[in-house]
Structure formats: C-alpha cells, structure tokens
Design a protein around this nucleic acid. Structure first.
Length: 569
RNA sequence: CGGGGAGUAGCGCAGUUGGUUAGCGCGCAGCGUUCGGGACGCUGAGGCCGGAGGUUCGAGUCCUCUCUCCCCGACCA
C-alpha cells in the first residue's frame, strides 16, 4: 500500500473528544472515525488490524473444535421473552419495529438465537458436543459509551457457544476454550491474565475474564502475591481479619451528637473502625434492604446484587430510607421490623461493637450478633482490597488495573430448558443440553493493545496484529536513485509476502518519521542518499531506540527473516 | 438516568458591553526554494457560527425550546 493512496490522514493535534491514549492515537493515525456516540468507522489502516486479530481468533477457535457460522442480527423479541433475559438487558437492547408492527431486537449477543437453532438441530447425544461460533458486530445501547473503541454501542465480537451432554463435558469444553483464549492473546502479542469473574444475575456456575493489564484499565484485579489466585474486584474474596473477641457486655446507649460517619464515630468514642458496625440502605427492585457491615469494610454492590437476585440495585434515597422508618446515620439493626436485613459475615468477627441506636444523635455500645439482632442473610458482601489476605494461601493480596478483553462463562442448562434444547442420552433419557458461552471483543482488544503498547510518539503494534510489517520510508523522493531503489524494495518485499506500507509522499523527513512513529508499524526501513552511499538501508524497530543498517544486497531475505522470527514470538 | 463541560472552516481554537465583509494556527490547492525528526516564501479555496423560535433597526454574541458530543458515577466484550 502506498501512503499517497491511503484513505485516511494523520493529525498533528489531539482530537478534542479523545481522552485516552488508544482513542487519541487511533484517530490521529487515521485508523478510525467517529460517526455517533460509541459508533465508529474503521478506516483501511485500522481495519487491517481488526482483520489480523479476527484471523488469529478464527484459527484458534477452529483449532479448538469451533465451527464458524453466521446468525442474523435481527432477532424477534419473542426470543428474549422466552429466555427471560429481557429484564436484565432492558434498555441496552436496540429494538426496531417492522412494517407489521413486529418488534425485533438487534443482536447484542446470540445465546437466544443459537439455543433456538441448536434445539432444532441436535437430538441425540451423538450430535454433541458442539461449538458453533461467529465473528460479527453486536449492538448494545450502552448507557455511556466511552474511551473511543473501549466501550462502544456497535462492536465486533467473537461469540462461541458450547453444547455438551453433561457437566463434565462442559468442563472439558470450558478448559479447551480457556486454552484457546490464552493462545489468542499470546499470538496477538498481548499477554492477558485470567481472573475469576462475577457470573451475574443469570446465576451461572463459573466465569472467568481475561484482562490486559494497563494502568488506564477500568477494572481492578485482585491477585495473590504468592499463589495463582486472581479475581475481578467484583468477585474477589479475602480472609477477613478478626478483631479480638471479648466477653459480651451489656448494651449501653451513648450520646453521639451530630456524628454519623464511621471515622468520626471511631475517633469520638476512641475505638477502631473495625469495632463498629455500619448500616447502609439499598433499594433492590423497589424493596428497601438494610445492609450491615463492619465499620472498616465496604459493601460490594455486585455481591449484594447477586445475593438478592435483583436486577436493579441502588443506594436508598433519603425518601426511601425515611419511608422505611430508619434514621440515617444512626440506624440500628435492633428493633428493625419488616425490613430485610443482609449482613456481611464480618459482623461475627469481633464483639461489643458500636452500632446505631435508631434514634438521632445516639449510638449503642456492646452490640453483639446474634445476641442483640438477627439477620435474614449472612454472607460475604465486602469489597476486597489490596493488602487483604488471600483466601487460598493466607498471603497478601495485590491489585492492578486491567481492561476486560474476553469473558468465558459456564451457563448450565438454564437457557436450554427454556428453549427446549434437549437431547436423548445413551439410556434413552431426555436431558437438557449443558451450555457455555465465550466472548472476545475485537475492537476492545485492538484498543487495549494500544493502551498497553504506546509511547509519547504513537502506537507500537505487536507484529502479529500490526497493519503492515514494514514502513518503507524513502527520504527525498525526487532523487531518482532513492525513489528507484525504494520502488524496487517495495516490489521485492511485497512479492516475498512481506506487508509493506510505502511512504511515497513528497514530504520532509520529519513529517515521515513522525507519521511512522504515530502509525506504529513495527519495522521501519529508511532509504536515503546517505544510506545509498554504502549500498544499504537503515532499519529500525518501532519499539527500539537504536537503528541499524542492512545491505541492499540480500535485503529481501534479511527482512523476511526478521519479520518471521519476530512474528512467531 | 444523576452530576459537570462543549458545539464557530477538515482539525485545534479566538471572537469584548449586540454594530460593517466572522478571525488565528494547522491542514488543503497552485508556484518556487528546501530535504535525516512535524522546513520556508508567495498566491488561493474553504463558514446556514449545531437546529428551531423569539427580542432588536441590527444576533456568533441576549432569551426560550431542542438536538448532538465529551467527561465523572450505576452497566459490559
């Protein structure tokens, strides 16, 4: 490809709307263009990267036993009513109405369609297992698209679904997919880490996310300094420290005028935060819930949401709290009636806590569970933080930021039962097919690759997903010797199967070098009067500081070798 | 959906208390000079000032409504 013919241009200035590195560089390098919020065109240069990623994924899915197919984006809304997932998708579903007033969802994912499809196709255990997949654009009306390609409303996803005869089969498919995912990220030159993830309100059995570690990531990963434990902070657990338990003392009221926050309360009464109990109110699907947790900890809303099996969870508003007869800041689990009480298991670790008295300006000392109050649900609902203790090996937990670039999920039989996806087993017994679902967001992976691989000059593509292998950069094209040599190198390399981006523009060296750095093609070849004096060219890896030289003689072979070695790393 | 910000040339921005023909930089086109880290000169093209309504002799500027985009929170690949 010649730069002079490329559709797309590089920009010197940072686009006003771009905040994160990947967004800025993708726009500045002319790889994407925005059409609407969370809706982007891929320009030819960006599209090549996406195609590279797609091909790597396709190869690994096929190798793992996947079969590529293509399902429609238009999905009758009835399918969503049937699956029961309409409420949880709710407004993120784009819905269109056809001329007959029939409603169709524009596919945000394809569990419904594939399960329906498989239910009509698979009849016997002999037909299983199956791993159909597709690579296609999905549509989700995200409440807030952000970060360029990081979260968009129309995006490319590889979605694979596994269908097995039993749990053991699912586990096997799942393991195979996990391996395939690891292969994908490794081959892309993007090492991702696998972490335990929240399985959501659907109530699946297990779920893992693949994270690309980068400071700009919006997910937090908790991992152990010693063992293999790693989890999304939404899911992470820890061994909670226990304050020393002492003999239960009689409950006593204490006046705490104007003091509502835990820190202030602890200082005022001369106790540590973990000697207090905190009350928080949530509204779960319209019902007010009283949540108790030890004062030094905080509520993990994802855990709480799963526990309550609700679709909408938010902090109780002032009106909701008052309406339930609670006194914010001084609420007590004692004397609560008719309100669901959920408590973190930390309330058992310690004794003689300070808690609210359920009247203004007053707290209670020496509150003990279960002597003084009861709860409806007692479970782990606390946020795990770096510095906490690993639930597996007792060592310290650490945390890093990451971008979720893949998610695998054991679904079970929930959907197959709803869609009548049954099969006849060896013994002639009808059973529901056991499902798994596995997604990779391609555009997100592309953006995450940049977040992880860039410098102040621009993108540094890993070679396997780079738009081109070589940036051929002749300086002073008017010089016949230079331009002729460059043309020949272009032809020779291209014929040898090297992907060359030829900067044939009549631009000054500075412009060319800066564009080369911005676009981030891994290997740069400079042809100039200076290099030709020695019958050589300059070569420089984008990721290296130093440049080297190669003789013109045997250049094609030398470059081929370089690209092949680096391409299979 | 709650909170904050912004819409003026392809991009980044300026535009005073309302006052002629709306500017600057980059980019773009032509000519010439330059050529190893965003060169220079000259000439030129390019605007429904997001949209609708209003106030006014007069609106980019004031008022009302509306649309869009970005950022922070609740969601996701």
């Amino acid at each position: 490809m010649r730069f002079s013919r490329l559709l797309g241009r590089t920009l010197k200035e940072v686009p006003a709307e771009a905040d994160c590195a990947s967004h800025q560089y993708l726009v500045r390098a002319g790889m994407i263009q925005q059409l609407a919020a969370g809706v982007y065109s891929y320009m030819p240069m960006g599209w090549r990267v996406l195609k590279k990623i797609e091909q790597i994924i396709r190869e690994e899915m096929d190798k793992a036993g996947g079969q590529e197919l293509m399902m429609p984006s238009l999905q009758p809304l009835e399918l969503w009513e049937k699956s029961g997932r309409l409420p949880s998708f709710d407004k993120t579903l784009f819905v269109v109405t056809d001329r007959k007033e029939h409603k169709l969802a524009i596919g945000p994912t394809h569990e419904e369609v594939i399960t329906d499809l498989v239910s009509r196709t698979v009849q016997s255990y002999r037909d299983l297992p199956q791993m159909p997949y597709q690579i296609q654009n999905k549509f989700r009306d995200e409440p807030r698209p952000r970060g360029g390609l990081l979260r968009v409303r129309e995006f490319f996803m590889k979605d694979l679904y596994s269908f097995d005869i039993d749990e053991a089969g699912l586990n096997e498919s799942y393991a195979r997919m996990v391996q395939a995912y690891k292969n994908v990220y490794t081959r892309c030159g993007l090492p991702a880490v696998m972490v335990e993830a929240d399985s959501g309100a659907i109530g699946g059995k297990a779920s893992h996310e693949f994270m690309l570690l980068t400071e700009s990531g919006e997910d937090e990963i908790i991992y152990c300094s010693k063992c293999e434990y790693a989890a999304n902070t939404e899911k992470a657990t820890s061994i909670k420290s226990g304050a020393a338990t002492t003999e239960p003392l009689p409950v006593a009221e204490v006046s705490t005028p104007g003091i509502t926050a835990i820190d202030a309360l602890a200082v005022f009464l001369g106790v540590r935060p973990d000697q207090t109990l905190k009350a928080v109110f949530y509204t779960a699907d319209g019902e007010i819930v009283f949540v108790m947790i030890r004062g030094d900890l905080e509520v993990n809303e994802t855990k709480l949401k799963n526990l309550l099996k609700c679709t909408d969870l938010h902090m109780g508003t002032e009106a909701e709290v008052k309406g339930a007869g609670l006194v914010a800041g001084y609420a007590s689990p004692m004397s609560i009636k008719g309100i669901k009480v959920v408590a973190d298991d930390s309330i058992k670790l310690g004794s003689n806590f300070v808690a609210g008295a359920n009247k203004p300006d007053t707290h209670l000392r020496n509150v003990n569970y279960p002597r003084d109050f009861q709860v409806d649900i007692l479970a782990d609902i606390a946020i795990t933080r770096a510095g906490d203790t690993c639930p597996r090996c007792n060592h310290k937990l650490l945390s890093r930021k990451g971008i979720e670039v893949g998610h695998v999920f054991k679904l079970g039989t929930f959907l197959s039962e709803r869609f009548g996806a049954y099969f006849l087993d060896k013994d002639g017994v009808t059973k529901p097919i056991v499902m798994g679902t596995y997604g990779i967001g391609l555009g997100r992976l592309l953006a995450a690759a940049i977040e992880q691989n860039h410098d102040e000059k621009g993108i540094i593509w890993p070679l396997p997903i780079a738009p081109y292998h070589v940036y051929l950069c002749p300086l002073k094209m008017e010089d016949k010797h230079v331009s002729k040599t460059a043309e020949k190198i272009y032809t020779d390399l291209t014929e040898a199967g090297i992907e060359v981006f030829f900067d044939d523009r009549d631009e000054s060296p500075g412009v060319k070098f800066n564009d080369a750095d911005l676009i981030g093609i891994p290997l740069r070849i400079v042809v100039s009067q200076r290099t030709l004096q020695n019958n050589s060219v300059e070569i420089k890896w984008r990721k290296e500081k130093q440049a080297g030289t190669l003789p013109l003689d045997g250049l094609t072979e030398a470059i081929t070798k370089l690209v092949n070695i680096s391409g299979t790393c």
